[in-house]
């Protein structure tokens, strides 16, 4: 065990799996000589060489499309989108080529696409998005979103080993803010939910950066016992863990940093409405960004992104219900 940031944990996971499996190669813009826009792959080119830490042309469709080709002839590409926002330029290759290949013709596509996502630092409309729901809605893709350093490492390794296309959401606002004990060597974190804090009166269901917002908001909330469920994986969605938490707590707040409509949290709320209605003791409340682009100026951005205060307010409202 050693303590490291969320960012270093991703690097550690990538390095571990590259040492372990020579089929693994990294592809992305400025990831080699420069070490990546966020330095996730800093020093990699020295250890693994330019062939396995590939500086690609500025072409997101190209990165994903060539990764698909390399995967079906035996490599294990890990693509970095410099910002999650830019994946819109590679959307077609992910959704139509990678996501449907196995279903259509029995050919698995083992690629991992890393998406540095999320806001909170004046990135503006094109460097702050949380596009995970686009991919949840597209069959054939797994979507994971770790919130801790330990899971960030375990889930990048598990994503690379998974024979299917995996969209790996790494929240930029966790990169250096979140630290934790990370096991040495190789291990996998399963694509299942995790209880971030036990509790009985209410459960906050979140993933990624919002897990930390939820923990902070409910650490001391008028003495209530509040559970925080960290989904970790959005596809597959750990339905059993969600339904179990509802059964136990009866009150649910679902938090997304993403835009409100059709977000991951909407799917969670729908699942609860369908399958756990009788276990509820109040409406399912949702906290998410309103349906606007993420604005640049700090007061505007703060007005949009779910805050500790908004989550606390939703919990209070529901506890009083």
């Amino acid at each position: 065990m050693s303590e490291m940031t969320y960012l270093r944990a991703i690097s550690d996971g990538l390095r571990t799996e590259m040492r372990n499996d020579e089929r693994v190669l990294l592809m992305g813009e400025d990831i080699g000589v420069y070490g990546g826009a966020f330095k996730v792959t800093d020093g990699f080119i020295e250890e693994f060489g330019a062939d396995r830490v590939m500086d690609t042309p500025l072409a997101e469709s190209g990165i994903v499309g060539t990764a698909v080709g390399a995967a079906v002839v035996g490599l294990r590409p890990v693509c970095e989108m410099q910002f999650a926002d830019f994946v819109s330029c590679g959307f077609d290759q992910i959704v139509n080529v990678a996501g449907k290949m196995l279903y259509r013709q029995g050919l698995p596509v083992n690629i991992t696409v890393r998406l540095p996502s999320g806001g909170g630092f004046s990135g503006g409309p094109f460097h702050s998005q949380n596009p995970e729901a686009w991919f949840m809605h597209s069959p054939g893709l797994k979507v994971v979103a770790p919130s801790t350093a330990e899971d960030a490492k375990g889930m990048i390794i598990a994503s690379i080993r998974d024979p299917n296309p995996v969209i790996y959401m790494e929240h930029k606002n966790l990169y250096r803010r979140v630290k934790g004990e990370v096991p040495e060597g190789s291990y996998e974190t399963p694509f299942k939910a995790r209880v971030a804090r036990e509790g009985d009166d209410l459960v906050v269901i979140a993933y990624g950066a919002m897990v930390h917002t939820a923990l902070e908001a409910t650490a001391d909330l008028d003495g209530a016992s509040i559970m925080v469920l960290d989904l970790r994986s959005l596809v597959p969605l750990d339905e059993q863990a969600i339904l179990g938490a509802v059964q136990r707590c009866s009150k649910v707040v679902v938090v997304d940093e993403a835009n409100y409509t059709c977000a991951a949290g909407a799917q969670v709320a729908a699942l609860i409405a369908e399958r756990a209605f009788e276990d509820l003791d109040g409406p399912v409340l949702r906290v998410a960004s309103p349906d606007v682009p993420i604005p640049f100026s700090p007061p505007l951005e703060a007005a949009v992104l779910p805050s500790v205060e908004r989550v606390r307010e939703a919990c209070r409202q529901l506890l009083e219900y």
């Binding site: 994903v64 499309g65 990764a67 698909v68 080709g69 079906v72 002839v73 139509n96």
Partner: peptide, 12 residues
């Protein structure tokens, strides 16, 4: 789309 997939196979 398949131009990129073919290029990727060639890259491998």
């Amino acid at each position: 789309d398949m131009m990129l997939v073919a290029a990727g196979m060639a890259m491998a």
